[in-house]
Design a binder for these strands. Structure first.
Lengths: 213, 213
DNA sequence: TCCAAATTTGACCAGTTAGTCAAGAATTTT
DNA sequence: AAAATTCTTGACTAACTGGTCAAATTTGGA
């Protein structure tokens, strides 16, 4: 008897499984991030993945499951560099590195950023739980680190929560509002060195502020 | 012969017209900002506006037209305070005022912010033209102003474009990621003085930076 | 090669959606 | 008050959507 594709044998995936699941995830990222959960159609995701809708539903049992997988994948990738902020490192260097990594992620995988943004803007029906438990705990932890740095005089006395929000906002903006950035900057936003230029400008503003010195 | 409601007589709107159009626009803002263009349904907008779908379609001929109206309204409100940045004012004061106003807009009308964000993230099918013409021109104008301020030594030498993006990103974040902010800050994010607290923190970071002085 | 399992698909179904239509109810004008 | 206009609605349609099913095709190991 043919088993569900989710677990064809002892948890191992065949070559075809691995390939097709990867194709589906990439297509899901593209379509969900562009059209939102309700706006996306399984047909479109299938077309983008180069297979029939029926076949796609052989690998993932429902639209919601495809979405859930795509979101989970995105969230994990999103958390890693934040978690990596080192309490024992130099504050400015740690934040510089985090901002640089996040800008790079926005540049290289803007669809993931938009998918997550879309989910949160919808009211986070799926990741709401995650936000108020795991993410909140992690943020609280980093906030303590930042407070220590401030107490040691190694960082200006800013509200750590809003500092984190400001970093998230700024770095995500270049993915989420990519079209707007390109409309305003023109073709320069597509040139090779652009992401370095962004990193330099953003770091300059967040590190030094805009008040003349 | 009954004429289209769009122009019942010489352009004047009856009391009922005015009332219902306002109801529809508010409902459209709510629903489109939560579910996106494709995810929103005319039925839901009508329900939210407290009338039948058929009646709603009497006032706006199609879903797209409802969306277009809501977007246009939002864009206009969004442009005003940016346009108001005064070349002859004090740079820090002008930017402080702009940031404060934008934060207030995010606080008071987060739906509008999310509607616009959603449109841009979708690839700006409707406002794309606006972004690369009118908005670009306005941004270029303000960039010149900021450059002058920098040349006069009244502002730190930052890239004006990215300064503007940073301000937009940060101020919009509190509307677009409202759920995330609340999940992390808890109930404190709902208290009366919260928006002032946000304004203070964001201004402190953007004006002074986070490097210790 | 042969066969069982895995993969793929077209036809189909039930529910939803944008928009139409004709007719009834409310409001304004005369 | 009567007539004309504006407003409102339920019933309907055609297109689309998520998901099922049985049958065909392909794959990989013995």
């Amino acid at each position: 008897m043919a088993e569900s594709a989710a677990r064809p044998n002892g948890g191992k995936q065949s070559r075809i499984q691995t390939e097709n699941r990867a194709l589906i995830m990439q297509a899901a990222l593209d379509v969900f991030s562009a059209d939102g959960y309700r706006g996306a159609t399984v047909d479109r995701i299938a077309e983008r993945a180069g297979m029939s809708k029926t076949n796609l539903l052989y690998y993932y049992p429902s639209k919601e499951e495809i979405y859930r997988s795509a979101i989970e994948q995105t969230v994990e990738a999103w958390l890693d560099p934040f978690d990596a902020i080192d309490p024992d490192g130099d504050p400015i260097e740690e934040l510089r590195r985090y901002i640089t990594v996040k800008l790079k992620m926005s540049d290289e995988n803007p669809e993931a950023s938009r998918l997550f943004a879309n989910e949160v803007q919808r009211g986070a029906p799926l990741v709401g739980e995650f936000l108020s438990t795991r993410l909140k705990a992690l943020v609280d932890e980093k906030v303590t680190v930042i407070r220590t740095w401030i107490d040691q005089g190694r960082l200006a006395p800013v509200d750590p929560y809003h500092l984190i929000f400001t970093i998230w906002a700024t770095t995500q903006h270049y993915a989420d509002f990519e079209v707007q950035v390109q409309a305003i900057l023109g073709k320069q936003a597509k040139k090779p060195g652009f992401s370095d230029q962004v990193a330099h400008a953003v770091l300059s503003i967040l590190l030094n502020g805009i008040r003349p010195r």
